[in-house]
Amino acid sequence: MLSKQRKLIKTALLLLALTPLALMIEAAIGQALGPDPAEALADQTGEWALRLLCACLAITPLRIITGKVEWLRYRRMLGLLAFFYACLHLAVYWVFILRLQWADFFYEFAQRPYIAAGMAALLLLVPLAITSTKKWQRKLGRQWPRLHRLVYLATVLALTHVWWQTRSDYTEALTYTLILLALGIIRFRRKRWFK
């Protein structure tokens, strides 16, 4: 594939992934987020973080299924976008819901384990985002893939975050879990074939 084409796909993907954010900002400005706008923003940013995480984790399975290495070129961007939405998710919670109150934050953190699980997931993504550059990839060498396996732990924690706060209808939590499980199975089987 031509590098020009690749760039075009990447730009399109980036714009596509940022569209939800643009829509959220538009709704926030137009006061169209409903009577509880902070909650609405927290919900939506969290959901997009999870969706993009799924997209990022779909890359390797796609490579395995199609046999095309080309897919890998979009993985970093998807991972960083997932991280970006996860950061927005925390920022919305911290600024608009907790209103920057440290005391409330510690209280919530201690009282509500699903918040701790979500926080842990985000914290695990921090070193991955930092070391996502080519430079770090070279620097870390064989350690790089090992380090980046942390994404699986982060994913489990993110799912825990979703399951734990579900009150009655598990359809959504189950959908994300099944998608991620399917992706994991494809990946896991490939590993076995390799050995």
């Binding site: 006061q31 009577p35 509880d36 706008p37 902070a38 209103r99 009282q111 706060q165």
Partner: peptide, 23 residues
């Protein structure tokens, strides 16, 4: 008496805005 998911000590009086949680 707190609910495991939400502190019940305070509440947000809807509608809230992004810059005023009306707590």
């Amino acid at each position: 008496v707190d609910h495991p998911r939400w502190s019940q000590a305070s509440e947000r009086r809807l509608p809230t805005s992004l810059f005023d949680s009306k707590r």
